[in-house]
Design a binder for these strands. Structure first.
Lengths: 339, 339
DNA sequence: TTGTACGCGTTATCAA
DNA sequence: TTGATAACGCGTACAA
């Protein structure tokens, strides 16, 4: 690798015969410099192909203009749309995005939080709110703005851009009750460190109780968020007796896993059992029968999370709590019991 | 925001009563420091919660340990798996990943390349190889290692970790010919700035020619990589006469779009028309009938791209050309013409 | 409106 | 094995 030497602020300054501060100002606060000088400077900048040295800029300005996002997974569409929107909004504000995925593992997530903070992230987007005290203390100690998405909580000192997971699954359960379902099962994600998963179960339990239906005995099985694991879990559920008339799933991936397994087992959906999802990703529209699910405003969450973080680092506002709405999307996988 | 002051190298040095150089060495080249000193230093580091200042580190070391990845889209699984593997491998080497998505737009991609380079990326992962001379000149001028994935090319001065797109679609076409197909149509992505899309079409044309089949008149329609756009394109293809017996698609997303439209129009797949994809993402296994497609080793590409970039910035090797294999995955959407 | 001068926290060179 | 010291390139008071 040959040693290339890039032009510095000083090179530009020398060429135009002004001070480095003037060049710096032209780039950062152009309005504070006379138009004539500014033009000469900017011309020289273009001619030399000057571009500020990132490290120096960060060291001096104490900001990286970089935001970290840690999502449980990038492999399916659930968080991809949100990330895309997050990054688009950052780009519109000439900021950049660092991303990691934690594989739904709290330990890995903690490590990644520390890494991104060490990397100088000006702010962080995290999914969910259930994590260790120590990592919250760490974040608070660094005074870094954090937005938690896909969930909602009380604000201070963190921001939330999300929705009520319990309410989302509750409205879906309510619709199922309305259609005549009485025997529910829930195929959940692992709830231990996942507040979204717990809330989604909780919402259903609440509805059952309100309708004086058996809820304490509702079959709840946890599985990983993969087709195969969910398929296995579904199979176990269907081996129980009496069979549920509806299996509500923690998300669309699990629901599709369940659906495919049902077909493999020759169980008709929705005639013999209804299946529902959560998220409303493309997958839900592509399977046969189409998946009844809860629509989540992924893009808006991503966009508003970025807006909020940018505003917070700019000191324009403090932590906020932005609650978005979900709604049930009815397709064919949910029908009255018995078809 | 209260002004927090984080411990610096000097704070650690003072506490242990050594020089800052020693502390720095303990962190970066621990073997070059006496074990006793090292232990005292590391203890102090832990006690103070010291973590190096990123900007200062970059400024002094001239490396960010950060790698940029620019993909056409994050919204579906096509590049998500590759990115995941890329980032996993980076993380294993305590490097981090910056990502952008260009929405399949060359202009946006150029802008993002410049941004990531300005942001100090030590290396870049790009998808495909067809882009403007000027951006290549820019990259060459900066001497930044670049790996182009999802494609293969002659190496110098760039690296490639990919596969032969033409060969992939060719083997699929050959199989279709073997099954008796004679009238082909291709539902392609936009080829103007997309070498993968062009190559995939080219592979099919080659096979048709080799089998003395009509190829110059093969119906080729381009569409965006979305369900709806692909559905529209499929519909136009099926309105032509004589109808093709097989519609090969540029990727799985387009193929699923075509498949769903076929079902909406009451056209039976594969009885009335076969449909094939490219990529072999989860989507392909979930639709009914399952999609016959070309399997692409996404994860391995991502992983090896990271390995290669890391090796290149470490000066352990120069640009390389790593060619991986694809293979046809037969499911139910491809069958002999007439069912 | 522009310039001077210093500080930011590290790494790297060289000497001890 | 350790320490002094010089970069590294930019932002920003403060002065002119």
């Amino acid at each position: 690798m040959t040693d290339r030497v890039l032009p510095t602020l000083e090179d530009v300054a020398l060429k135009v015969d002004v001070s480095t501060s003037t060049v710096s100002r032209c780039l950062n606060e152009p309005w504070r410099v006379a138009e004539a000088t500014r033009n000469r400077v900017l011309t020289a900048v273009a001619e030399l192909g000057y571009s500020p040295n990132f490290g120096a800029q960060v060291l001096a300005a104490k900001r990286t203009n970089t935001f970290g996002a840690i999502v449980p997974t990038m492999s399916n569409a659930i968080f991809a749309r949100g990330l895309q929107a997050f990054q688009d909004e950052l780009m519109r504000n000439s900021a950049t995005m660092l991303v990691s995925s934690s594989s739904y593992d709290a330990q890995i997530e903690e490590h990644q939080i520390r890494t991104l903070v060490a990397r100088g992230a000006d702010g962080l987007l995290l999914i969910g709110k259930r994590r260790s005290k120590s990592i919250y203390k760490f974040l608070e100690g660094r005074g870094i703005p954090v937005v938690m998405a896909w969930t909602i909580g009380k604000a201070h000192p963190w921001s939330y851009v999300g929705f009520d997971n319990a309410a989302g699954s509750a409205s879906l359960a309510a619709r199922a009750v309305e259609l005549g379902h009485r025997r529910f099962a829930f195929l959940s994600g692992e709830r231990a460190m996942n507040d979204r998963a717990s809330d989604r179960v909780r919402g259903v339990v609440r509805v059952l109780r309100q309708n004086d239906l058996e809820h304490s005995g509702m079959c709840i099985i946890e599985s990983a968020y993969t087709f195969d694991a969910a398929g296995d879990a579904f199979q176990r559920i269907m081996e129980s007796s009496p069979r549920p008339t509806i299996v509500m799933c923690g998300n669309d991936v699990q629901a599709v896993g369940a659906l495919k397994r049902a077909q493999a087992l020759g169980i008709c959906v929705p005639e013999e059992v209804s299946i529902t999802g959560f998220d409303d990703v493309e997958l839900a529209t592509v399977v046969e029968p189409g998946l009844t699910t809860v629509h989540v405003p992924h893009r808006e969450m991503g966009r508003r999370a970025a807006e909020l973080l940018l505003a917070q680092v700019a000191g324009e506002c403090g932590p906020k709590r932005i609650k978005l709405q979900t709604h049930v999307v009815e397709r064919q996988s949910l029908a009255p019991p018995g078809g």
